[in-house]
Nucleic acid binder design. Structure first.
Lengths: 111, 111
DNA sequence: CCTAGCTATTCGGTGTTGCTAAGTACGAGT
DNA sequence: ACTCGTACTTAGCAACACCGAATAGCTAGG
C-alpha cells in the first residue's frame, strides 16, 4: 500500500503482532510472512524484528531459542500473562477509536 | 486515555480532522474543543495546529482569516477537492486496516 | 489601571514508531 | 564455490503526537 497505511500502522502493528501471538507462539520470519499474506504486502523485515525486541523488553512475551533445519536458530515468542493483559487493553483502545471513526464516517455531523 | 491511543492516533488523527472539515469548515481552537468533547480528552493543543499547518502545505485545505470578537483572528480551514480525494483514500485505507483487525480479533486463527 | 482569564495561534524540543539498507549467519541444491 | 532461501541484527532516517512556553487580542473584577 502506501504512506497512509504506514502511518496508521504506528500503534496498531504492535497489537496485531500480539494478537497473532495470542493464537499460538511464532517467530519473526514467520510473523512477517503471515502479515504479507494478509495484505500487509510491504511490511519491512526489520520492522517486525524491532517490534519483537521491544515487546520482549517490556515483558509482554516469553522467548525460546529453537534450532531450525533451514537456517539459524529461531527465536520463538509466546504471549505471557502480562502480554495478554496488554492485548486486552489494546482491544479496548482500538474499539474506542474504531467507534469514533465509524460515527464520523456515517454521521458526518458528529457534534 | 493513555499512551496506546496516542500511538494509534498517528496517521488517523489527520483523517479525523479532515473528516470533521468535510462536514463544515472550522478553525483550530474549535476543532480541538470538538475532539475533546468526543472522548479524545487529552489531545494536545499544539498537535492540532501542527497538523493543520501540514495539511495546508499539502494543499488539502483552503484557509481564510476571519476576525473574532473574542480574541485574535481565526484561521478557518475548509476541505478542497484535493482534500476530499485524500479523505476518500484515507477511508479506504482505514477500512482495510479495520477489516484485518476485526478478522484478527474474531478468528483468532487468521491464516 | 492592571491583572486574571478565556480565546486563538505559533514554535522548539522530545520520544515512539515504522522504513530503508546493509550486514551476519546457517543449510541445501547446483 | 556459489547461489538461494531461511533467520536475525543494526544504524540512521522521517513522520507524527506530545509537552511546555510564548505571543496576541479581548473582557471583566479588584
Amino acid at each position: 500500500m502506501g504512506k497512509l497505511v504506514t502511518e496508521m500502522l504506528k500503534g496498531t502493528l504492535e497489537g496485531i503482532v500480539l494478537a497473532i501471538l495470542s493464537s499460538r507462539p511464532a517467530y519473526g520470519y514467520e510473523i512477517t510472512a503471515r502479515l504479507r499474506n494478509q495484505g500487509f504486502s510491504d511490511i519491512a523485515e526489520g520492522t517486525v524484528y524491532a517490534l519483537l525486541v521491544r515487546i520482549e523488553q517490556r515483558g509482554l512475551v516469553d522467548v525460546e531459542k529453537v534450532p531450525s533445519e533451514k537456517g539459524p536458530p529461531r527465536k520463538v515468542y509466546s504471549l505471557n500473562d502480562q502480554g495478554r493483559e496488554y492485548l486486552e487493553e489494546f482491544w479496548r483502545t482500538w474499539s474506542f477509536l474504531a467507534g469514533r471513526l465509524e460515527q464520523l464516517r456515517k454521521g458526518g455531523e458528529w457534534t
